[in-house]
């Protein structure tokens, strides 16, 4: 009895709240693999960049020396590269074989620049309305494409640094020092972006805090989806979502989804409190 009561009370604030499926199991798995390998790579790679500082020396010694962290770094690198291959294969499979529509929404478009401009105006108090996003907003697209440009650089330069003697046989002599520069600078870029900007947007931003769990659960509460991706919801007027989600309930009608004046300002303002 006590248990059911608890569950009910916990569910109470979101009574009759249905979820919108945003990510399937493969996308969630891809994110988890990317996240865990990224953390290991950063934890074992950054001390090399900042080798002069005492904490790096302590950290490497803690894990049993440079050989251990080098090994962990390489394992995580293979996991990350494998994850990217997984992602590309997944994309090919879902579009070519399952005949799902190609995710054009992920491609950068002039709309993103416009949205960024509109958001900046809103944040700086020059406008009362925030931009409305489709399935992916410009931050999510940037995160995605940053990996797309970063992976070839990191994996390529990492491979050169891993087998310098081998690559020196068929690459020019500046390849190894350039790989070192690229690997270490791009790593700092990735780590600062993820730990400052991505973590902020995914966890700390007003309206999201303490955490946006959608990439792990695949689901987003409908009211949140309405705030975050109104244009996508409006487009899918007949939302034939994946039927395998058991907790799907009949959807109520969309409450003024596309009214730009109501949704962003009020909803954001309230959730910020």
């Amino acid at each position: 009895m006590a248990v059911t009561a608890k569950v009910q009370s916990r569910a109470a604030p979101q009574e009759q709240e249905e979820n919108v499926v945003r990510f399937d199991i493969h996308q969630r798995l891809q994110h988890i693999l990317m996240m865990s390998s990224f953390i290991v790579l950063a934890a074992t790679g950054l001390p090399l960049k900042f080798s002069e500082s005492g904490i790096s020396q302590w950290w490497i010694s803690f894990w049993g020396g440079i050989e251990s962290t080098r090994f962990a770094h390489r394992i995580a690198a293979f996991v990350m590269v494998g994850d990217c291959v997984y992602h590309v294969l997944y994309l090919a499979y879902t579009t070519a074989i399952l005949k799902r529509p190609f995710p054009f929404q992920m491609l950068p478009s002039p709309q993103d620049v416009q949205n960024l401009y509109q958001d900046l105006r809103y944040y700086l108090g020059l406008s009362r309305t925030q931009a409305q996003y489709g399935r992916f907003n410009y931050r999510e697209k940037f995160d995605y494409w940053a990996i797309f440009w970063g992976m070839p650089i990191m994996a390529g330069s990492g491979f050169i640094l891993m087998y310098p003697v081998l690559v020196s046989e068929f690459l020019p002599n500046w390849a190894i020092p350039v790989a070192l520069v690229a690997h270490s600078d791009e790593a700092v870029l990735a780590v600062s972006w993820i730990f400052i900007v991505h973590i902020f947007f995914a966890h700390l931003a007003p309206g999201v805090f303490p955490m946006n769990k959608s990439i792990f659960t695949g689901k987003v509460p409908r009211h949140r989806y309405m705030e975050e991706h109104p244009l996508e919801l409006a487009q899918t007027s007949a939302p034939a979502k994946e039927p395998e989600m058991p907790e799907q309930v009949p959807r109520p009608a969309l409450p003024q989804a596309t009214d730009p004046n109501v949704v962003p300002t009020d909803a954001k303002g309230q959730s910020a409190l």
Binding site: Y123, E186, S192, I196, V197, F200, P206
Partner: peptide, 17 residues
């Protein structure tokens, strides 16, 4: 590249905060 991309991200975080 690093400086400009990080500066862009950090300024987005700052204005939103």
């Amino acid at each position: 590249l690093t400086a400009s991309v990080v500066a862009l991200g950090v300024s987005l975080v700052l204005v939103e905060t």
